[in-house]
Design a protein around this nucleic acid. Sequence first.
RNA 1: GCCCCGGUAGUGUAGCGGUCUAUCAUCCGAGCCUGUCGAGCUCGGGACUCGGGUCCGAAUCCCGACCGGGGCGCCA
Length: 442
Amino acid sequence: MPQWQHITYSNQITTEHYGKQITVGGWVQDLRNLGGISFLQLRDREGVIQITSLKKKNKELFELVASLPRESVVLVTGMVKESKEARAGFEILPDRIDVLNRAEAPLPLGVVDKVGADLDTRLNNRFMDLRKEEVRAVFQVEAKAVEGIRQFLLGNGFVEVHTPKIVAAGAEGGSTLFPIKYFDRNAYLAQSPQLYKQNLMATGFDRIFEVAHAYRAEASDTIRHIAEFISLDVELAFIESSEDIMAVAEGIAVAGIEHVRAHAQKELEILGAKLESPSAPFPRVKYKDAVEIVKGQGMRIEHGEDLGTEGEKALGEYMKREKQCELYFITEFPTSLKRGTFYAKRFDDDPETTGYFDLDYRGQEIVSGGQREHRYAVLTEQMRENNLNLESFDFYLKGFRFGMPPHGGFGFGVERYVQKMLGLSNIREAVLYPRDRARLVP
RNA sequence: GCCCCGGUAGUGUAGCGGUCUAUCAUCCGAGCCUGUCGAGCUCGGGACUCGGGUCCGAAUCCCGACCGGGGCGCCA
């Protein structure tokens, strides 16, 4: 058996192992040398094991242990012994220690130091930061959330697709596009799979989703913006209204949380996050009612204005307080606020209003979507309103001329979802290697 | 992009014109200790972002650069 398969994880050790020899491997988290006895806390993927050495039993081995700098990588082969003093209920008495890699000192960032570190320092040394279980737990939760969402979508007949991230034109304004060199031409990083997922609605793939990076060159320095984020995009055809889309968005939000609750209980505990089952259906608050609620909270806002960050927060507090609700839709956004979203379908009997919605989680937008305009003539008219050059959207528009069913969809911000779920103060905490206006490394 | 705030040992901080050969913790090194797990004890080590300026004197005040934090706009 290869060495890596021979290693026992800390959480796999049971009373069955007591009195037997095993091999464990990991990082030297901490070392206490009391003179005649020493305790090495060895951390692996799953937890921490105590390695107890006695000087009188093996002086050479004892001195080797004592010389190990923290965060060195070692393999320890020894006997598992039941112990009342050890936290895990057992400890390992080493027969052999292989030092695979000695760590330098001082560490750029302490893993178990009794002092904090700024997020910037942590991100600059992310590999060290990720040795902390509470940091890794965030990404375990994210993985479980996405797993739950995938299961939900696959179970409902959605097909997972992958669309290009190197594109010729953007779905929205050009200002938020990252230009790149594409051989001898200019191209951009995709800010959204919008045009492609709509194009796919004309193919027979009538229910699709994609989990992929999206790139936004927004000059936004906030705790909820990053230049590269995971967009979970959904599009489905043969719908009758934006309500059909909302039902899917709701299903996703519930599925992610429920899957995390069921499969990441340990991580939630580590993070101290209390995550309750959301009750569906989520409330639908029409934009015009949202304006009144925000006004009622003492804020100055007029109908037709964007709610703004503070308005969104105020609405979030209101929904929590009055409706005991953390997830809710803001629906029927006025056309005036969605004019840039040229593909948004306006109500036939009220062209000043769209079926577009946001899904907010604790006062923060995590989803935006709605029914699209699938009629070629109306769509091109709305694009002209935006002074768009129709020729550069040729591939997109062609899809509408030869059989395009009514459809709609949304984009779901995975990191924002996880951030809100866990109450993280900065979205960067929910990204392994975040990219923002200032950060390109690591 | 706009508006506030901040940059002091590896890490996190105190100090905010002279008493700073700069505080505390953590950390690192040497030593003592056979049950530690926020170990304890003794000794030692390590820092004022950079460039101008004001002043008898600058970590401290002013200007600029660079870096960081937060808010707003915008958005996932």
